[in-house]
Design a protein around this nucleic acid. Structure first.
Length: 210
DNA sequence: AACTCGGGGCA
DNA sequence: TGCCCAGAGTT
């Protein structure tokens, strides 16, 4: 690890601490799974608004499996792509019950075989529920790993593997969450708050507006 | 690689 | 009112 990388990681720790942060509200694994499915192309803040009521109305996995699709579509409407998501959530709930004894699987290929669960969603589940070292590559991570020069590629898989090389393995998930926090709060896609950024002197972004 | 699947927030 | 934001699946 280069001295610069070490400095970046130290500052992330200083700024955000070593407490694990999950931005999606949930009480258990299946709730997190549904919350992450809803979070596709949608902000975590909005997902939390929707799931607050959703998990009261549908308080068991079975209720999602038995849900009326038109009604569920309305319940999750504001998260966008609601027809796909409602169908996927119902299919997911049924498969969890029928094939996984009502549990959320930990295996990556099992997870990505579920409707509406892609690589990002699967890695969120693995990191949050099973503490499996895997890098969540969402658009925050893609953007920041590029701005920090951890990857020059726009390919998400490339970003994931580049970050895996850069970040210490025993802190993958923690640094991953810290980077996502930086992306949400400071290093935003548009109009990043470079004046407030504790990494601005180490930033390699061509589009930075410091 | 390119397309489709919607809605919320903001200027 | 038009632009930007946020993943998964299919062809």
């Amino acid at each position: 690890m280069t001295k610069r990388t070490k400095e970046i990681l130290n500052r992330l720790d200083t700024a955000y601490g070593t407490d694990f942060i999950c931005y999606l509200n949930h009480d258990n694994a299946w709730q997190l799974l549904i919350a992450v499915i809803l979070s596709a192309q949608c902000t975590d803040a909005r997902v939390n608004i929707v799931t607050k009521d959703l998990f009261v109305k549908y308080d068991t996995l079975q209720k999602f499996a038995d849900a009326d699709i038109a009604e569920l579509e309305q319940d999750i409407h504001s998260t966008g792509f609601y027809r796909n998501k409602a169908r996927n959530i119902i299919l997911c709930a049924r498969r969890l019950i029928e094939e996984f004894q009502g549990e959320v699987p930990s295996d990556l290929s099992d997870l990505t075989s579920l409707a509406g669960v892609g690589r990002k969603t699967a890695n969120v589940i693995r990191g949050n529920i099973y503490n499996d070292p895997s890098i969540v590559v969402d658009t925050h991570v893609k953007r920041i790993s590029k701005r920090l020069g951890f990857t020059k590629e726009s390919d998400p898989e490339k970003a994931e593997y580049d970050l895996m090389k850069v970040l210490p393995k025993d802190h993958w998930i923690l640094y991953n969450m810290q980077i996502i926090t930086l992306g949400r709060e400071i290093c935003t896609a548009r109009n990043p708050k470079c004046g407030e950024c504790f990494l601005s002197d180490l930033c390699q972004a061509e589009d930075k507006k410091c």
